[in-house]
Design a protein around this nucleic acid. Structure first.
Length: 497
RNA sequence: GGCGCAUUGGUGUAGUUGGUUAACACGCUGCCCUCUCAAGGCAGAGAUCACGGGUUCGAGUCCCGUAUGCGCUACCA
């Protein structure tokens, strides 16, 4: 039987990086074993589901390069089947109508309410099967339903026994029926509930392996019960450890902000392959210990058995802008930027420059050799794609900022520099040809004549030509910017004012 | 409250059927290289493997308990 897996997010917001990782693992597994990777949007909660969210999920997956194999499935479209299944279970006596009036819960303290109710239930000695409608004669149930009395449908969980399944990650799991309530399948307004929907949909879609977050581990027992009631074979389950914030709390946008949203990484200049690589290493480790893995390598060595059981901490630093996300993610992105094939990087840089009005069509044409050379040089010390338009700005525009601290340290500290650099400009004007070699010789000779350290002129030049104190070798910069721009910037005197 | 799951340096992870100096990556420190910053090279700090018992000649690895964290416990997903 060929493998079919799915990623089934609910469209109630941005795509969370934890969800993105679930998608990735499903995708990797499908690609690894030659199975199908499907996408299902779980939009049964109509109140909270939005089209915008669905779009952002699809965009996110596309950005990560996780292509799905069949048509997108909307869970809401299967609602008739969900209801049909629930009614069938009632007919078969495996579920029952619960005419208890619906209670209203405050959305705020649901968790507390649950704990409170559980406590009361325990002290009053109520068990999970105390529902008065559980054993209502079928005729009466039918009659009341026909009379229009509202009801929810609950699964009739047997008194004795236990569910069991083997989780590929967490191992053998058992749970006694006594700990499982008669779960609601259908709300009194006819809406199918999550546990019913997933099971029906997974059956409908022929899912063979359910790979999802560990937060569903205990719910799985209910679902196993449903598979049994429906006479269907349960799929294999593999639950993934969760991704937590540094304080070990659940990662949430409300509490932790943008770092948890996948699109943030796209918007802040991550290379998709780098982020995918980083995500893969959260909770999973390759057998060889090699960490930088291409798409092919990732697929090749991926296995469900390599997934760990402990929750991983996503180590970002909330109050440190330069370490706004996990250090290793940032490092990996830099690693990709400086080592990936230039031809794959170029389109991303183009997009970035374009967004900042720094792109010129010539870069694709007569200046393409220059452009490639420039990108290849400056990418060596960049961390994100954003750096091409910020730190790299001086290479693409004459309108760039001078860093105050750099100007003070490399220019103002030595008053003679203004004249010296102007003199250097004169010297460079005569250099022929104009390249790294010749400018180097010229600068050194000039430093000798003037009786100053070459470093003084080099650092001063860097400040004048790029506005920055750090960057590539100065002579490479001269060559790249060319004689005219180099000379002009050296003479501009701009930063002195 | 009940039930479940987890616990190896700051972070991510390796640690084969229990065997001797607990490994790798990121981060951090120092040195080299050097016009700066990276990269690279070298060196280093940092873990009594959550804690307490037990089994064993021997435990990060097996068993029990405790703690902590997380999850589920809903006519949310």
């Amino acid at each position: 039987m060929s493998v079919r897996v799915r990623f089934a997010p609910s469209p109630t917001g941005y795509l969370h990086i934890g969800a993105a990782r679930s998608a990735l693992f499903n995708w990797l597994y499908a690609r690894k074993v030659g199975g199908k990777f499907l996408l299902r949007i779980e939009d049964t909660d109509l109140q909270r589901s939005t089209e915008e969210s669905t779009r952002s999920i699809i965009e996110g997956l596309e950005w990560l390069g996780l292509d799905y194999d069949e048509d997108l499935v909307f869970q809401s479209a299967n609602a008739p089947q969900h209801r049909g299944a629930a009614n069938r279970l009632v007919e078969e006596g495996k579920a029952y109508r619960d005419f208890t009036p619906k209670e209203q819960y405050d959305d705020e303290d649901v968790k507390q309410g649950i704990a409170e109710r559980a406590r009361v239930q325990a002290t009053e000695g109520l068990d999970q099967r105390s529902n008065p409608y559980r054993d209502l004669p079928k005729e009466e149930s039918d009659r009341r339903a026909a009379a229009g009395e509202p009801f929810a449908i609950r699964l009739k969980v047997a008194n004795e026994g236990q569910t069991r399944f083997d989780d590929i990650v967490y191992g053998a799991q058992e749970r006694s029926y006594a700990e499982i309530e008669d779960l609601v399948l259908l709300r009194s307004d006819g809406h199918p509930l999550y546990n019913l929907s997933v099971v029906i949909d997974d059956i409908l879609m022929g899912i063979t392996h359910v790979i999802r977050g560990q937060d569903h581990l205990t719910n799985t027992h209910k679902q196993v019960l449903l598979y049994e009631a429906l006479g269907a074979k349960a799929p294999q389950f593999a639950h993934l450890p969760l991704i937590l914030a540094p304080d070990k709390s659940k990662l949430s946008k409300r509490k932790h902000g943008e770092v948890v949203s996948l699109t943030t990484y796209r918007d802040r200049g991550f290379v998709p392959a780098a982020f995918r690589n980083f995500l893969a290493l959260l909770g999973w480790s390759p057998p060889e210990g090699k960490e930088i893995l291409s798409e092919e390598e990732l697929i090749e060595c991926f296995s469900l058995e390599g997934i760990g059981r402990a929750n991983a901490i996503f180590n970002f630093h909330e109050n440190d802008a330069s370490r706004w996300t996990d250090d290793k993610a940032l490092w990996m992105n830099a690693e990709y930027i400086r080592t990936m094939p230039l031809d794959e990087l170029l389109p991303m840089v183009k997009t970035e420059l374009r967004a900042n009005k720094l792109w010129r069509e010539e870069y694709d044409d007569e200046d393409s050799a220059w452009f490639r050379k420039t990108i290849d040089l400056i990418r060596q010390r960049f961390f994100t794609l954003k750096d091409f338009s910020s730190q790299g700005r001086a290479y693409f525009s004459d309108d760039f900022d001078f860093e105050e601290a750099v100007v003070n340290k490399n220019l103002r500290k030595e008053p003679r520099l203004r004249e010296l650099l102007s003199g250097l400009a004169n010297k460079l004007e005569e250099v022929e040809p104009f390249n790294a070699e010749t400018t180097k010789a010229a600068l050194r000779a000039f430093a000798d004549e003037a009786g100053v350290q070459p470093g003084l002129l080099i650092n001063g030049s860097r400040a004048m030509l790029t506005g920055q104190g750090v960057g590539p070798s100065m002579f490479e910069i001269f060559e790249l910017l060319g004689r005219d721009r180099s000379v002009q910037r050296l003479r501009s005197g701009l930063p002195w004012f």
